[in-house]
């Protein structure tokens, strides 16, 4: 969602940092460290509490690079089972990059590099022997733009269970597909259209189809990258309700540009700025009493 209150400070900086800018290597050091100073001006970052009870995902000192671009700087964050955590921050601050580290989607990006340690349920996900394919079946992801496959609604949802062999026969597959569509709140609308292409649904329906597709493989965590940015308020409200329901069973990490959305759906909020995690806290505290000046500036719309 395009919240008019959100000013994008990353814009100016990011463009000066763009790849191909000849003076990058030497030039970027000064503005970047200036920003770092500005961020730490109010003391150490991050402020708030990056730890949580009963952590399920633990990211320790994670750094991510795209070639020379240092997109994530030393981020440490814990995420609990069955909680919704919202990642907010100006455009280009690394929210997408961070959640793509969590399911190793950055593996397929050329020049991308991740350092640090991320564990899922105690297991290091960047460990040598670990198969990212298995990992991604445990950590589902919903993208900013709905991306249903050019297949029927049914086949879209059945795709994941099929490749993972989750259903023994057709009846079981039917159950999984219907159950997932039901949970995604889409079954009623598409009951008679299961054979039609998923790409012919409306945008909001497509996004719920993508959510259904994700929960059909029964993941433990769902990552959502601005899942409502292409949707109208009604479709957004439906997805937010859905997130509330799903939160009972899954850990959900949602990236959003809408403060209202973060306030509505999340239990904790993490504020990123220029690749750094600046503040993490309970949602109420962040929005009523932010500790860091940058966080306060951002949520009051003063950053720029």
């Amino acid at each position: 969602m395009n919240d008019p209150n959100v000013i994008e400070p990353g814009g100016v900086e990011a463009s000066a940092d763009g790849p191909g800018d000849p003076g990058r290597r030497s030039d970027t050091v000064s503005p970047r460290s200036a920003v770092a100073e500005q961020i730490t001006e109010f003391g150490r970052i991050p402020v708030g509490n990056v730890r949580c009870e009963d952590p399920f995902i633990i990211a320790e000192n994670v750094n991510a690079y795209y070639g020379d671009i240092h997109a994530i700087r030393n981020v440490t964050l814990e995420i609990a089972k069955s909680e919704v955590i919202a990642l907010i921050g100006p455009s280009g601050c690394g929210k997408t990059t961070f959640i793509r580290c969590l399911n190793r989607m950055n593996d397929s990006v050329e020049h991308a590099r991740v350092t640090g340690r991320i564990t899922l349920d105690g297991q290091d996900i960047y460990e040598r022997g670990l198969d990212p394919v298995v990992l991604r079946a445990r950590i589902g992801m919903v993208f900013q733009k709905p991306n249903p496959f050019p297949k029927s609604v049914y086949d879209n949802v059945a795709y994941g269970p099929r490749i993972h062999g989750l259903a023994a026969d057709r009846a079981e597959l039917d159950d999984i597909v219907h159950g997932s569509l039901e949970r995604a709140g889409l079954l009623k609308e598409v009951k008679d259209r299961l054979d039609e292409p998923g790409t012919e649904l409306s945008g909001g329906q497509q996004q719920r189809l993508c959510i259904a597709r994700t929960i059909a493989v029964n993941p433990e965590v769902i990552l959502m990258d601005e899942p409502c940015s292409a949707l109208d308020p009604i479709a957004t409200a439906r997805i937010e309700d859905l997130i509330d329901e799903l939160a009972e069973d899954y850990a959900i990490v949602i990236v959003t540009h809408s403060m209202q959305q973060a306030a509505r759906v999340s239990r904790r909020v993490a504020y990123f700025h220029l690749g750094m995690l600046v503040e993490v806290d309970e949602t109420d505290r962040i929005f009523t009493n932010p500790q860091h000046k940058l966080t306060e500036d951002y949520i009051t719309g003063r950053i720029g």
Partner: peptide, 17 residues
């Protein structure tokens, strides 16, 4: 579109799948 591919990979598909 690349996001088809990403969608499949995010579901735990291998590259050939």
């Amino acid at each position: 579109p690349g996001d088809m591919r990403e969608g499949a990979l995010a579901l735990g598909a291998t590259r050939s799948e």
